[in-house]
Write a protein that binds this DNA or RNA. Structure first.
Length: 523
RNA sequence: GCCACCAUCGUCUAGGGGCCUAGGACGCCGCCCUUUCAAGGCGGUGGCGCGGGUUCGAAUCCCGCUGGUGGUACCA
């Protein structure tokens, strides 16, 4: 079966539902689908699954599109691009679902359900809902059971009242009563579904319910809306999707989908369910509670999109060798389903931080300055359209921070002293490695050297100050610490002291040295 | 509760019966380099959840247990 599928052109889709900002899990699913599609030389399709009108969020689609683009993911067909299998928004495909799903009633694979939403809601949830009973944990199992005769447990879901309505009567009632369409689940037997990662999985049909495929039509609406289970398989077939790579949360509903394909007489595609991404603590799904989840938040926080992409690539997939850094092209070449891991991964940012540093260090000065600009502007150190002089100044500064930042957003506070007067500091900071007298002599000498240095470059300043240190009989470390404090206001600052001086220029450097000397003078 | 999936260093993972005294990366620790902090180089710490099988031999196969996660909607 898989050979047969692979013989045709591969077509993969990413089908998010626009209920919020694109989050990390979303991005990973999109990335894996994209990489596999490209690896197989096939098509990649974006399809918007907007059948949930209640949770629909307007900015969501735009955010998903920008987030994916930022990560380097692009598609061949989609709502913004069109394509031969459109439309690509489910909200625009309502008549299609209507037709196919009603066809299922004709063939006896589904039936209309006239029960109200309230009634069905009441007939289900006979079993526990998870959080409802407070502090269950270890207690519940021990306490309740014993010999108590629990009410006969209903398997799950809808009680199938309407399943036994004779077809003739059902047809008549459909004329004037609102109805939903439910799948007629086999009452016995098993369904075997195949997952590319886990092999065959067997499900007991008697445990599966008659789930809704088409929701009840709402007053005033022309068409009824489908559920995910009603719409996705139809779209996947009509769009000639060959591989479905999606989140683990869909694994339990895979029998519903293969049964539906079977009911239509269609060949199901290859299924591959990705393990969930756990929160950093490893407890539960990644959720907003434990830090950021949206791609846009990571980008705003100062992560490079290519680093983020590299990180999520590795979060649940690994290649044949021990490679850690993958360009997009390398990822496409190396990505196969076999490399996807089956167990869930905790979202820890340690490695992401490291990767971000690696990518930052690999950027050219110009490129990094470009990427830094928004953060500098946000911090008020750069005007919004920055003029040539400002951009030039920033480029001078970039080498000082390139090797020491983890996040782009680390930069402004690190280099603020190159834009503004450093904040007041204690005179004691000048004397960490030397006595007050020595510090005075060092500063005094530096003042003279700086006044005369020509050219005023980091390199030359370094040479002449080193000489001065020898003359004074102090070690380099003793020489440069007080100068660093004087010039940057802190004992720890980016760059070599002499590079800082060169960037500041002769006048500012002299002023700051003099000010430091003044502090010592008052002692 | 029921159903399903998963289970190798702290984290991400390699491993598909002998090549494993279990490899890599991040983190952590130490040393080197060094005008601070970084970066870089070198070294180290650290793991096959438990119990049964199968086999000459098991991290690798099977069963059970335990644990984790997901699902159980006219949400996706």
């Amino acid at each position: 079966m898989e050979e047969k599928v692979l013989a045709e052109r591969a077509r993969l889709r990413f089908a998010p539902s626009p209920t919020g900002y694109a989050h990390i899990g979303t991005a990973r699913t999109a990335l894996y689908n994209f990489l596999l599609a490209r690896h197989l030389g096939g098509d990649f399709i974006l399809r918007i699954e907007d059948t949930d009108r209640r949770r629909y969020m307007e900015e969501s689609v735009a955010d998903i599109v920008t987030s994916l683009h930022a990560l380097g993911i692009d598609w061949d067909e989609g709502p913004d691009k069109g394509g031969a299998y459109g439309p690509y928004r489910q909200s625009e495909r309502l008549p299609i679902y209507h037709e196919y799903l009603h066809r299922l009633i004709e063939t006896g694979h589904a039936y209309p359900c006239f029960c109200s939403g309230e009634k069905t809601a009441a007939s289900q949830h006979k079993g526990d809902k998870k959080g409802s009973d407070s502090a269950s944990g270890s207690g519940s199992a021990a306490s309740g059971s014993g010999s108590g005769s629990a009410p006969t447990p209903v398997a799950t879901g809808y009680d199938r009242t309407c399943r036994s309505i004779p077809p003739e009567e059902a047809r008549r009632r459909m004329e004037k009563e609102p109805y939903a369409i439910r799948f007629k689940m086999p009452l016995s037997g098993t369904t075997v579904a195949h997952d590319a990662l886990r092999g065959d999985i067997t499900f007991d049909n008697s445990l599966l319910d008659d789930h809704v495929l088409l929701k009840q039509k709402q007053p005033g609406e022309k068409w009824a809306w489908p559920t995910y289970h009603g719409a996705a398989p139809i779209d996947d077939h009509l769009m000639k999707i060959t591989h479905i790579v999606r989140g683990d949360e869909w694994l339990p509903s895979i029998p519903r989908h293969v049964l539906l394909f079977k009911a239509f007489g269609w060949e199901p595609p290859v299924f591959c369910h990705l393990p969930v991404i756990l929160s950093p603590s490893g407890k539960g799904k990644m959720a907003k509670r434990e830090g950021s989840t949206a791609v846009r938040e990571f980008l705003k926080a100062g992560y490079l999109p290519e680093a983020l992409r590299n990180f999520i690539l590795l979060l649940g997939w690994s290649g044949k060798n021990d490679q850690d850094i993958y360009s997009l092209e390398e990822a496409i070449a190396a990505f196969t389903m076999e490399g996807i891991s089956k167990s869930p991964a905790a979202f820890r940012t340690d490695k992401l931080d490291w990767l971000n540093g690696v990518y930052i260090r690999n950027l050219s000065t110009e490129e990094l300055a470009e990427r830094l600009a928004p953060y500098m502007q946000e911090a008020g150190l750069l005007k919004d359209p920055a003029d040539a002089g400002e951009r030039d100044y920033l480029k001078q500064i970039v080498p000082l921070i390139q090797e020491r930042i983890t996040l782009l957003s680390d930069t402004p506070e690190l280099v603020r002293f190159l834009y503004e007067e450093p904040p007041e500091y204690e005179a004691a900071l000048l004397m960490q490695k030397v006595s007050a007298e020595e510090a005075s002599r060092i500063l005094q000498t530096a003042l003279e050297v700086v006044a005369a240095a020509e050219p005023f470059t980091g390199e030359h300043l370094h040479a002449v100050l080193k000489e001065a240190a020898e003359r004074l009989g102090v070690k380099a470390g003793q020489m440069f610490l007080p100068l660093r404090v004087a010039v940057s206001g802190r004992p720890v600052s980016p760059g070599s002291v002499t590079d800082i001086m060169a960037i500041l220029g002769r006048d500012k450097t002299r002023a700051r040295l003099a000010k430091a000397l003044g502090k010592l003078g008052k002692l």
